[in-house]
Design a protein around this nucleic acid. Structure first.
Length: 926
RNA sequence: GGGCGAUUAGCUCAGGGGUAGAGCGCCACGUUGACAUCGUGGAGGUCGUUGGUUCGAAACCAUCAUCGCCCACCA
């Protein structure tokens, strides 16, 4: 083995072997365990959020697989309608063509071609992360099977009256020319203006002043509304105004919707271009005047001067004309709530169109109950509140999109507009008894991408065919996802899963936090703070990193700033940390449900952790026999052996508990602590005198060798779910010596509580107590050494004062250990009446360790050292005594707490006494 | 306007009614045959504010402050 762990050489080889061997597929006859991957967009590449999420899912998957569960981690990708169409359109544009030049069929063909050539890069990147998904079951939402599931659900919902077609206002993206669901519209605060316009009365003098942020829509006004209780305007209700520029007569109406306190208390009503106005219009039976084209320029219904103008140009022109007419009352600066499409960034318009909707309430009801009754559990629990809030206020879901890439809506129209819904045209003709001669044309629209995503938990398993996989793996065990898609995806899966499978799609929903940069900023291309997980695995030099971050920017003028920040933060580029270090970092940061600042310091530390493990393994391999020990060869376990086994066992128990609670951060912390600070820092050091000492029996040597190997082998299995690569690589060498057989660590049993323990519990208890004593002893000597500046290499004599028989037994039995760990020369108990030489002191309970000072130690320094300890102890003692003197404490606190406090106070007292004695002796030397 | 979350060491974060923790960083010492991606020792915190509950609060409750996020139709 090399002196330093170098992941690059190992990871690809190890992964290829796992994949080629088919080990990711469900196996065995244990209970089913299933996680569905949230399908990444086919256009996507792996970002930090994916890498984090994949680490969590893979750790859970590997843990359960090792537990013997029949485990499936289902992979796949999403066709991502709008995103993918935009990518391919951009490519066409670069060739100087548009999708209309190609026509629908050729365009769709082109998208498939793009997918075959450049789509799904993320699958390769997932492999680099070590993801143990079952590639043999890989799915794509536009696969024939999944498309059949989409058609089946659509037809079924339609037949049941849960899907309908209707004309109403939708969120219209005038750039992409498609409808959007409410969720795809992002509301933002933007600087704008509030314009106050005068609308003259049609008869007599006077006018009303209306305030609007959207002057261009006034061309479509069909009323002005005031509040019914607003006395200022009560006399005008029912009269008419002349709509300026247009000249149309419009009524003044009264409606509760108006807030009398806002602005002038008069609102212009434009039913065709505002969701609220639409409702007002309905209540008052107002006419709708649509003034926009589908690109949101003015249509032919408006006065000639405005026809064809873009909406924002029209706005300026209308304000100018109102001003020249003397009808512009005033203009105020105003923060405008602006809706934008989440993909295009275009300002979205409420626009009157025919669209398909899912009637959501009947589906939402059981989905709410499923969470209320605990059939689905959110982790952490508080996300269920978010879920309920949304589900209780949910609106019908607009599922049609005016795109070409996606699942075409399985609806056909006859020449008079009759609607027929079926699996295909033949099915429709059969179902509705339409003769072959009746011309039918299919709906041009496709379905919202999230419609097919909502079916993912069962469509991937073969539904509507009743497959074995469906029986085995539905419902899934847990869904691992970010809170940002609870509405988009989680809620819809629950609704459709309950509807079509009659059961929840998963038992638990584990919601993880969002990965942010070291300053808490969201990572984004335009901020230039994106980290690519692959760069953390493989490393990247500074110039490549700068080039990567500054190329392809939407706003190229940001490049210099990004470059500067990048050069400052990564003067030497990014080191190659390896996938395991990255995964361990994610696991360690995976505290539930809060944002995560990705701190490079952490990954640095965990790379070192990999190296530590690697070197511990090197030590073990170099110092144990390659021969498997004979079954009946005499082996004898030392206290240290029993101690480390007990510690390992305690760690195993913790890990199981933390996995059950999805606390990967605590799993990581527990295994880190054990590996570094118990196994390496103490046990490996304790093993050295046994393995290398002269006066050691073969049986003792065998016992320690076996313990080193067996605990390491178990530890590798314990670490495997989080660090699959390095554990596999080491395990291949360690396992045979530790008596473990098998082709791969990933199919070995996960350590169970009790496995590692050797011998009876009583012996283990004694061993643990002895080793704790040894550690206190060693720490005491080291502290003297460190604080008194004694060379680490200098062997010291230690005298034991005030020792019990137990102390002397321990000192005798563990003399070799003490000498090695604390670099001691001799350990000598003093008789009770034997005079002690001047010495530096450390306490182990009531036992006083003395390091004689002649020539080594400065009396003054030792005194001030002891005085410092004394001061600390006095503080603690005062606190404890204060409590004990408080009769309320003694009277009310539980007896055990009081007893514990008494004990503490007594301990402090004794220690102070010891220190005091020692100080007196030192004082006598001055 | 509603809702949620956060506030603990210089930084990133655990913890949780009775002794304040980790990693990184910092200081000192160290080329002891696993590892300098290391070892040993050390310094460093009145746990955001103000009240309350309690024998006891960093933890529970309330209030405020600051920051972040989600939802919502005052034009």
């Amino acid at each position: 083995m090399d002196k330093t762990y170098s992941p690059g050489d190992i990871e690809r080889r190890v992964y290829a072997r796992w994949e080629d061997s088919g080990w990711f597929a469900p196996a065995g006859d244990g209970p089913s365990y299933c996680i569905m991957i949230p399908p990444p967009n086919v256009t996507g590449t792996l970002h930090m959020g994916h890498a984090f999420q994949d680490t969590i899912m893979d750790a859970l998957t590997r843990y359960h697989r090792m537990q013997g569960d029949r485990t499936l981690w289902q992979p796949g990708m999403d066709h991502a309608g709008i995103a993918t169409q935009m990518v391919v359109e951009r490519l066409l544009n670069a060739e100087g063509r548009s999708k209309h030049d190609l026509g629908r069929d050729a365009f769709v063909e082109r998208v498939w071609q793009w997918k075959a050539e450049s789509g799904g890069q993320i699958a390769q990147q997932l492999r680099r992360m070590g993801a143990s998904v079952d590639w043999s079951r890989d799915r794509f939402t536009m696969d024939e099977g999944l498309s059949a599931a989409v058609r089946e659900t659509f037809v079924s919902l339609y037949d049941e009256g849960l899907i309908y077609r209707g004309q109403r206002l939708v969120n219209w993206d005038p750039v992409l020319h498609t409808a959007l669901s409410d969720l795809e519209v992002l509301m933002g605060d933007e600087d704008g203006f509030l314009y106050h316009f005068r609308y003259p009365l049609s008869e007599g003098d006077g006018h009303l002043v209306v305030a609007t942020t959207r002057p261009e829509t006034m061309l479509g006004d069909s009323a002005v509304a005031v509040h019914p209780a607003d006395e200022r305007y009560a006399h005008l209700v029912g009269r008419e105004l002349v709509l300026p520029i247009v000249g149309r007569r419009i009524p003044v109406i009264a409606d509760e919707y108006v807030e009398a306190e806002f602005g002038t208390g008069c609102v212009k009503i434009t039913p065709a271009h505002d969701f609220n106005d639409y409702d007002v219009g309905k209540r008052h039976e107002l006419p709708l005047y649509n003034v926009f084209t589908d690109s949101a320029s003015m249509n032919d219904s408006v006065p000639e001067a405005y026809r064809g103008l873009d909406r924002f140009d029209a706005r300026k022109a209308i304000v100018a004309e109102m001003q020249s007419l003397g009808l512009l009352d005033k203009v105020e600066n105003y923060t405008v709530k602006t809706p934008r499409g989440d993909r295009s960034g275009a300002v979205v318009e409420p626009y009157l169109t025919d669209q398909w909707y899912v009637r959501i309430e009947p589906l939402a009801k059981p989905a709410i109950e499923a969470v209320e009754t605990g059939r689905i559990r959110f982790v952490p629990e508080n996300w269920s509140k978010t879920y309920f809030d949304w589900m209780h206020n949910i609106q019908d879901w607009c599922i049609s999109r005016q795109l070409w890439w996606g699942h075409r809506i399985p609806a056909w129209y006859d020449e008079s507009g009759g609607i027929y819904v079926g699996r295909d045209e033949a099915d429709v003709r059969r179902k509705y008894g339409l003769a072959a001669g009746v011309p039918l044309r299919q709906d041009e629209d496709v379905l919202d991408t999230w419609f097919s995503s909502a079916l993912w938990p069962f469509s991937t398993l073969g539904w509507p065919v009743q497959t074995r996989a469906l029986r085995e793996f539905y419902p899934g065990s847990v869904l691992v996802t970010g809170f940002d898609i609870i509405f988009f995806w989680v809620a819809r899966m629950i609704m459709l899963g309950l509807k079509f499978m009659g059961d929840v799609p998963f038992r638990e929903v584990y919601i993880h936090g969002l990965i942010r940069d070291q300053d808490g900023q969201k990572m984004s291309k335009s901020k230039g703070n994106v980290l690519d997980p692959l760069d953390l695995i493989d490393g990247i030099d500074l110039e490549s990193l700068v080039a990567k971050r500054t190329s392809g920017l939407m706003q190229p003028h940001l490049a210099p700033r990004i470059e500067k920040a990048t050069r400052q933060q990564f003067p030497a580029g990014i080191e190659a940390y390896g996938a395991d270090a990255l995964r361990f970092t994610f696991a360690a940061l995976a505290t539930t449900g809060r944002d995560i600042r990705f701190d490079l310091g952490r990954i640095d530390g965990y790379r070192n952790f990999c190296n530590k493990l690697w070197n511990a393994a090197r030590f073990v391999l170099m110092n144990t026999s390659a021969e498997r020990p004979q079954k009946d060869a005499p082996a004898e376990h030392s206290a240290a052996d029993r101690w480390i086994r007990a510690r390992f066992d305690a760690t195993v128990r913790q890990v199981h508990r933390h996995f059950a609670e999805y606390r990967l951060d605590l799993v990581a912390q527990a295994v880190y602590e054990f590996t570094w600070h118990e196994y390496c820092d103490w046990y490996v050091e304790m093993a050295k005198p046994v393995l290398k000492g002269d006066a050691v029996s073969a049986a003792a040597r065998a016992g320690t060798g076996a313990t080193l190997l067996e605990v390491l082998e178990g530890l590798l299995r314990l670490l495997h779910p989080i660090m699959p690569f390095i554990t596999e690589e080491i395990w291949q060498q360690v396992a045979p010596r530790a008596g473990a057989a098998g082709a791969t660590i990933m199919l070995q049993p996960f350590p169970r509580a009790g496995d590692a323990l050797a011998g009876d519990a009583a012996a283990a208890d004694i061993a643990v107590a002895d080793i704790e004593w040894v550690r206190q002893f060693v720490l005491g000597v080291r502290q003297i050494r460190g604080e008194m500046d004694i060379a680490p290499g200098k062997a010291l004599p230690v005298l034991l004062e005030n020792s019990t028989a137990e102390d002397r037994r321990r000192a005798r039995e563990h003399a070799a250990l003490l000498r090695w760990l604390a670099r001691l020369d001799t350990v000598t108990p003093l008789d009770p009446d034997e005079p002690a030489p001047p010495a530096a002191t450390a306490l182990v309970g009531d036992l006083r360790l003395l390091v004689p000072m002649q020539g080594i130690i400065d009396v003054g320094a030792e005194r001030s050292r002891l005085e410092k300890q004394q001061a600390k102890l006095r503080g603690e003692l005062a606190k404890a005594e204060g409590k004990l003197a408080n009769s309320k404490f003694v009277g009310n606190a539980p007896a055990t707490v009081v007893a514990q406090e008494r004990e503490r106070a007594a301990d402090f007292g004794r220690q102070l006494e010891q220190l005091g004695e020692q100080l007196t002796k030192l004082a006598a030397l001055d």
